[in-house]
Design a binder for these strands. Structure first.
Lengths: 228, 228
DNA sequence: ATTACTAGGGAGCGAGTAT
DNA sequence: TATACTCGCTCCCTAGTAA
């Protein structure tokens, strides 16, 4: 069954009362509720079961089913995903765990051409150091992937005596609902799909009193230009 | 595209900012966001457009799209459908417009065997007259259809000198969040899929001060037995 | 560079049926 | 009665490509 259909079937089971308790059903009974054949209802129930969205007991003349808390969470997540887009369009939210990177970020951010461009285009006077967050939820990795495909604010690269510094692109962001900053992507360079890099005018580790391993919430705002 | 997928695609467009304003996109740009091929994105955009969930303008080198208020409503409806099942499992909600039936309801309700059975099984001393509601939304017709397939509380039929009265089944209901009653289905008899019939101990037209043409909200509660 | 048509392949659906 | 398997058939998805 299609991913998008899962919460709908779970909701129909909830409507029938399968919330925190088993209900007695049969797959042919379900066909009017799922608007599917008995065979497909059987398949759907087994898929929901194998994905652990429902508990199932085969009894004489039917089954007992109950939506699991994983199933409930999945409905809630879907609902909140809709809600977020309705209340904050043009905006993505991610959460990741703080970790210490290679220190490259602070090296880059101390370079004058970057500093000047960040200030001019984003009004950010970058603190010498970036916040590295590791995304632990697949849904945030997907968001990060989608962001990587958007245009963002372009910060050009440059050279000094010793080496070349590549261009980056940024999206304005709010960290922990409080501090302004930006998510930064290196363009034409390795990008780890489960890592995001945040810059800010502030020393966020100090200001937010956060340490490696802490979960940090980031809201990323889009510009209005999508096609590169 | 599958019905269940529609709100997901609309939400992705909202995330990109297509809320109350046009965004410039291309179908190949969308493929990372929809997780579909360019060709399917094209098809999806056109399906959303033909169903009036989005507005579309073809421009040089792409399209401008914007989610319509019908699209927004559809997302909200889906979200609230999930929410209702989460907060009130084992419960359906419908809304219909009051109309005057053939008066059969009041005739039936005045029959002693029915009155006694309603009181014994549902603690309802039926007011001689039923509330007929015409469902105007397809989603409520679907709910009514699904209810018609559930077991409900059985009220047996009977005979008097002149004729036979068929059995009915009932589901406890709350009318306008205030008055208790029940939705009644005739068993083995014609059933209009867009009409529901409500009984109550109260004269609801008077108590609620409602007249033909008024919208009336009904919450129907399920018993715990599903298979007939 | 676009959109979107056509054609082929694959996934999903339901009828029939074994258990 | 059930569940759930196999097997066609259909529909949907994508690759190729026209416009």
């Amino acid at each position: 069954m299609k991913q998008y259909a899962i919460p709908h079937y779970l909701v129909k089971l909830l409507e029938l009362g399968a919330y925190n308790k088993f209900i007695k059903i049969s797959t042919s009974f379900l066909k009017d509720h799922f608007e599917m054949s008995q065979q497909s209802c059987s398949r759907i129930i087994n898929e929901l079961y194998s994905k652990e969205y429902i508990k199932k007991e085969i009894i004489h003349g039917g089954l007992n089913v109950m939506v699991t808390s994983k199933g409930i969470d999945y409905i809630i997540e879907t609902k909140e995903y809709f809600n977020l887009a309705l209340t904050k369009p043009g905006y993505f939210e991610m959460e990741g765990r703080l970790f210490t990177g290679l220190g490259e970020g602070s090296y880059y951010m101390s370079k004058r051409p970057y500093k000047k461009a960040f200030y001019r285009k984003l009004k950010i006077d970058p603190f010498p150091g970036t916040l590295n967050l590791r995304l632990e939820d697949e849904k945030y990795e997907k968001i990060n992937f989608r962001l990587s495909k958007l245009k963002g604010t372009y910060i050009p690269g440059f050279q000094d005596q010793s080496r070349t510094y590549g261009p980056v692109k940024c999206f304005k962001a709010i960290i922990e609902d409080e501090y302004e900053g930006a998510q930064m992507f290196a363009i034409r360079s390795h990008y780890e799909k489960n890592v995001i890099e945040i810059i800010s005018s502030f020393h966020l580790r100090k200001e937010l009193n956060i340490n490696d391993g802490d979960l940090v919430k980031v809201k990323v705002y889009l510009n209005n230009a999508f096609i590169d």
